[in-house]
Design a protein around this nucleic acid. Structure first.
Lengths: 399, 399
DNA sequence: CTTGAACATTCAACTTGATTGAGTTAATCG
DNA sequence: CGATTAACTCAATCAAGTTGAATGTTCAAG
C-alpha cells in the first residue's frame, strides 16, 4: 500500500485566491458564528466588499444561512450568518481488519448516520465493494441532484508502506502492497477521497466537533489496535515524509522492558494499548473482544483491569511528557476504542512529569483530557477530515 | 521572555498573490537552478507569461541572474536563470549566556562574514547593544543604499516563557521575563527580525545550504548547552503552540535513570549533551570549556570521552527511534557545538532499533547523518531562517 | 425631538495580476 | 532546406479584490 503526499509548491491566481478566501471566510464563520460581514473583514484582512461577495456565494451554495440581526451599540445592526449544517455532508469510512464503519457527518460536524459492515476478507476488492455498499446505504434517500457530498475520508490502520514494524500481523491489511488506496476508493465511491490513519482522523474529529474545537496545535493519543498519535500543528495535520508520523506505540519507554511484536523491547504499546489489556486479561483467563467487553469488566471492578490501568499509567505519563516536550501542544487528548470510564480512570492515574515545557503558568487547556467523540471517532474523523479540508485554507500546497 | 507566533488566518488579494508567486518562483530557481521560465511554469502551475513577469521583477531586484542559454533538443534554447548570491543577504545573530555570534549569509547560502563578541552581562539592554555593534561590523562597507539586507534571524536558547524546566539556570538568560525579544531586536537592528531557538535555526541552516538541501521533512538534533530538536515538516518549521517544541533534552529515556537538573530522572540530556560530557570528564578531573577542548581530547584518544560516547549511544539511538516513529522524517541530522569527529564516532556507535517506520525499503537519505554546517550552525541558522522565509511561500499565515 | 456620530452594508468605478492566443525566434529532424 | 518543436513576448481579456461614495440604522448629546 503506497500513500504519497507529494506537495508540489504551486503558484496562485485569481481563481485559487477566491477559493482560498472562501475557505478563510467559511472558517471564520465556523469559528465565531454567528458573525457578520464587517467582523469577518476585520479579522481576515479582506475588504468588506470582498467578504460580502463571498458571503453571497456561500449562501447561494447553501453553506451558510442568515442568523438574524444583532444590534451591538450604535450603527446598523449586524446581519449575522452561521454554518448551515444541512448545507453539505461528508462520508467517513473506517477500515479495520475485520469490519468497516461508515459515518455521514454534516458541515456543522453533526453525525447524521452511522453503520457497520462485517468484512469477510480484507483484500482491496472486497473492501472496495463494502465501501460502495456503505456509500449506498449512507446516502440513501438523499437528493442526488444536490451534489452536497463534499467527499469521503477513509481511515486505515497505518503504518503505510513496507517498514520495519509492518510485520506486526494482526493489525495489518493483506494484499495491499501494490494498491493505491486513494485511487481505489475514488473509483469505488465516485467522489474525492482522502486517506488517513486512525489517530490523525480522530484528532481532526475532535477539532471539528470535540474538545479541540478552538485549538490550532494539539496531540491525540488514539487507542486503536495499537496506539497512535495524531498531531495537528498550527491547524495543519502532520503526516511525516511518508505518511507514517505518529507511530507512538513503538516508541521505547523502558529500554529492555516487555517484548513487543515489532522485535524491540519496552515499546509503549506493550503497556498502554488494547493489545496490552488483552494480554493482561488473557493471563488471568479472561478473553475480551471489544471495547464493550472492557467496559463491562470495568463496571464489575475487575482487579486485573485495574492492575492494567496502574501499570499503563507510568509509561503513558512518560510518553505524554515526551509529547509535550517535542510538540509543545495546547493539550493532549486521549481517546479511541477504549471506554470513557477507563480513559477517565487512566487520566486520573497519570503522574505527569514536572520538568516539561507544558508545566507552564497560565494554561487555558488542561494538559491531558479525554476526547469527546467516543469510540466511533475514527469513522467520524474520516468525514471530519473532509469537512476540515473544505474549511481550512491552503494555497501553497497541491497534491 | 514571551515569544508569540499567533497566526491569524488572513485572506488574499492580487498583491499578496503576487508575493506568494514571487516566492514560489524564487524557490524553484533555488532548488533547480539553472532553470528557464517554461519549466518553472510547468512545475508551478503558473502560466509562462506570469513566470516571465515575475522573473523580470526578480532580475531587476537582483535576486536572480541570467545563466546562459541551454539547448535541449528542438526549439528555442532555454534562457536559464540562477540565484544571484550577492543579490541580498541576511544577518544571523546567536545569543548565548556569555557571548554573541554574528553571521552574514547571502541568498545562495554562502557565509560572507562571522564574528564573536563577549557578553559581559546578558540582560536585554546589553544584548541589544552588542547586537547593534554586530550589525555595524557585519554590514561595514556595504552599500547602505542598496537595501539588500533582508532582515535578521536571532537565535536564543529556549525554552521561552515560564515553564517547568526554565529553572535549569546555566542555560537561561536572566531579566528577560517581560521582554518581547522581537520588538527589542527590531528596534536595535532597525530591520525585520525573527527569533527562533538554536535547534530550529540549525535545521533551517542545513536546509538552505547543508545536507538537508532538497528535503522537505527532517529533524535536527542539536548539541547546544542542552539538547534540542529542530523539526521541519513539509518545508514548514515546527514551533508548537508556545514556541517551545523540540525540547528533546528533557525527554525521559530511562525511567528512574540519572538525575537531571530539571527535577526528573533519566532525561536524554543527562546522557547525550555537552552537559553530560562535561560532568563525565569533570568526574575524571578534566575541565572542558569549549567544543575545541573536546576536539583535543578526542584527538588524544581520551578514554573518558570514549566512554561517554559509548554511554551516550544507547539513549541517543533510542531517542532517534522515537523521533523516526513520531515524525517520520526523511532523515535525522546530528550537529551543533560538538566536533565533527565526535559526532561521526557517535553516529557510528548508534544501534538504531529495527522496529521503526524508518526501517523502510528504498530509502534515499541515510537514517542518521552529520550536519554540514559545522559549529557555528546556530548563527548561520539565524540568517538562514530569513533566507528561508524569503524563499518559502506562505499566504495563509500572517504574524 | 432633532441632529450628528458611528457603524454595517451596498453600488459602481478602478486596479492588480494572472490567463489566453497570436506572433516571433531559434534550435533539430528528415 | 523546409517542417516541426519549443521558449518566449506582446497585447487583449478576465477574475477578483479594493476604494470611495451612498444608504440605511441605531445611539447619544443637545
Amino acid at each position: 500500500m503506497k500513500i504519497v503526499h507529494p506537495r508540489r509548491i504551486v503558484g496562485s491566481n485569481a481563481e485559487r485566491t477566491r477559493l482560498h478566501n472562501r475557505q478563510v471566510v467559511l472558517g471564520h464563520v465556523r469559528e465565531r458564528q454567528p458573525i457578520g460581514r464587517a467582523e469577518i473583514a476585520r479579522i481576515s484582512g479582506l475588504s468588506t466588499q470582498a467578504v460580502s461577495n463571498i458571503i453571497a456565494e456561500l449562501e447561494e451554495d447553501g453553506f451558510i444561512v442568515e442568523a438574524g440581526r444583532q444590534s451591538a451599540g450604535r450603527g446598523l445592526p449586524v446581519l449575522q450568518y452561521r454554518l448551515n449544517g444541512d448545507g453539505a455532508a461528508a462520508l467517513g469510512i473506517e477500515v479495520r481488519p475485520d469490519a468497516m464503519f461508515g459515518a455521514l457527518v454534516n458541515l456543522a460536524g453533526e453525525t447524521l448516520f452511522t453503520t457497520r459492515e462485517a468484512l469477510p476478507k480484507n483484500d482491496p476488492k472486497t473492501v472496495a465493494d463494502v465501501a460502495r455498499r456503505i456509500r449506498t446505504v449512507a446516502l440513501h434517500g438523499r437528493n442526488a441532484e444536490k451534489q452536497d457530498i463534499l467527499g469521503a475520508g477513509v481511515v486505515m490502520p497505518g503504518p503505510f508502506g513496507k517498514v520495519g514494524i509492518s510485520g506486526a500481523g494482526q493489525t495489518a491489511l493483506h494484499g495491499w502492497e501494490e494498491t493505491d488506496p486513494v485511487a481505489l476508493f475514488e473509483d469505488a465511491l465516485d467522489m474525492a477521497v482522502v486517506v488517513e490513519n486512525d489517530a490523525t482522523a480522530a484528532a481532526v474529529a475532535e477539532r471539528v466537533r470535540g474538545v479541540a474545537s478552538g485549538l490550532r496545535t494539539f496531540c491525540f493519543i488514539y487507542f486503536g489496535a495499537g496506539l497512535g498519535l495524531g498531531v495537528v500543528n498550527d491547524g495543519e495535520v502532520q503526516r511525516g515524509a511518508f505518511g507514517n508520523a505518529g507511530e507512538i506505540g513503538h516508541v521505547i519507554v523502558t529500554p529492555g522492558g516487555r517484548q513487543c511484536a515489532c522485535g524491540n523491547k519496552g515499546c509503549l504499546e506493550t503497556y498502554a494499548s488494547r493489545i496490552s489489556v488483552r494480554s493482561k486479561l488473557a493471563c488471568a483467563g479472561v478473553e475480551i473482544d471489544s471495547a464493550t467487553d472492557i467496559e463491562k469488566l470495568y463496571e464489575a471492578g475487575n482487579p486485573h483491569l485495574m492492575e492494567w490501568i496502574g501499570e499503563a499509567a507510568g509509561p503513558l505519563s512518560q510518553a505524554i511528557g515526551m509529547i509535550e516536550n517535542l510538540f509543545d501542544p495546547e493539550t493532549v487528548i486521549l481517546g479511541g476504542a477504549m471506554p470513557d470510564e477507563v480513559l477517565d480512570h487512566l487520566i486520573g492515574a497519570l503522574h505527569l512529569p514536572g520538568g516539561s515545557v507544558a508545566a507552564r503558568e497560565g494554561r487555558v487547556s488542561p494538559r491531558v483530557q479525554r476526547g469527546a467523540c467516543g469510540r466511533l471517532t475514527a469513522a467520524l474523523g474520516g468525514a471530519a477530515l473532509v469537512i476540515h479540508d473544505t474549511i481550512t485554507p491552503r494555497i501553497a500546497a497541491k497534491t
